[in-house]
């Protein structure tokens, strides 16, 4: 064996191991994850499946979220209590009044081509923003100009996702109700484009506190071969939340 062959073999071994065990095998396993039906026999009270599928509008909103680069300031990842205080921050972990707050799990992102777990937290986590703010009009006002809702916000304005047009006849039902300093001049209205609507639909859909089926919690559910680990942390979350 010459030097180059030896070197190539060594490199292939050194890098091939993590490539195989950290990337390819987990990728193949997680690819097989599927929604798990809730089961009455196990004691689940919900119907249908965990997680529920995504509507077409929501998928379109997911794409707008990527195109506008929301991920560079907003995470979608609630950490368990050993790794951060996320679960204690009001509203971040899900519906507190129902005791449902928990950290995010692998299955929560099923159906999303890419999970926007996050890069920076220049803005708050959005995993459960759909519960925190249930009014689409708020989202539209906030996207149009974040300072209209939060004076301190450093979020950019997405006014280019909105159209300013003269009011002809009846004002549009979609028109934004803005505070005076952000409102357009008399005779004009601001209406969302389809992109803005899709994005808001997506934001409203972010409710990653679904009840985890008993089967998954016990490590039986789904095609996830790794659900041993997943279920373990899930149980931990239940404890933390309760």
């Amino acid at each position: 064996m010459n030097q180059l062959q030896k070197f190539t073999l060594g490199l292939a071994l050194a890098f091939g191991l993590p490539w195989l065990f950290l990337i390819v095998i987990p990728w193949a396993h997680m690819r097989a994850l599927e929604p798990v039906p809730y089961s009455e026999e196990d004691g689940d009270v919900e119907v249908s499946a965990y997680p529920p599928g995504l509507a077409g509008r929501v998928r379109a909103g997911h794409r707008v979220y990527a195109e506008q680069g929301c991920v560079y300031c907003h995470t979608q990842m609630v950490r368990p209590t050993y790794a951060g205080s996320d679960l204690w921050r009001p509203g971040w972990g899900g519906r507190e009044e129902e005791g449902l707050q928990r950290e995010t799990r692998m299955q929560d992102y099923l159906g999303e081509s890419y999970a926007f777990l996050g890069v920076y937290r220049n803005g708050p986590d959005l995993s459960n923003v759909g519960w925190r703010i249930e009014d689409p009009a708020w989202h539209h006002r906030h996207l149009y100009n974040p300072r209209a809702e939060n004076e301190w916000s450093i979020m950019p304005s997405f006014s280019y996702l909105y159209e300013k047009r003269p009011v002809e006849g009846q004002p549009s039902a979609d028109a934004l109700e803005l505070p005076a300093e952000f409102a357009p001049e008399e005779g004009y209205e601001i209406v969302p484009t389809s992109e803005a609507k899709a994005l808001v639909e997506y934001l409203m859909s972010l409710k990653k506190d679904y009840k985890v089926p008993v089967a998954v919690r016990k490590g039986r559910g789904g095609a996830a071969p790794d659900s041993g680990a997943g279920a373990g942390s899930g149980a931990g979350a239940q404890g933390d939340a309760g």
Binding site: G10, L11, A14, F15, L17, P18, W19, L22, P26, M77, R79, P80, Y82, A83, G84, E103, T104, R105, M106, D108, Y109, A115, L117, D226, A229, G230, S233
Partner: peptide, 21 residues
């Protein structure tokens, strides 16, 4: 070369990945 390929996923520590990653 041996350690380099295993790095990176700590970016999502506490995230929805299997904890060993």
């Amino acid at each position: 070369m041996i350690f380099g390929g295993w790095t990176g996923m700590q970016r999502f520590m506490g995230g929805p990945l299997p904890a060993w990653m």
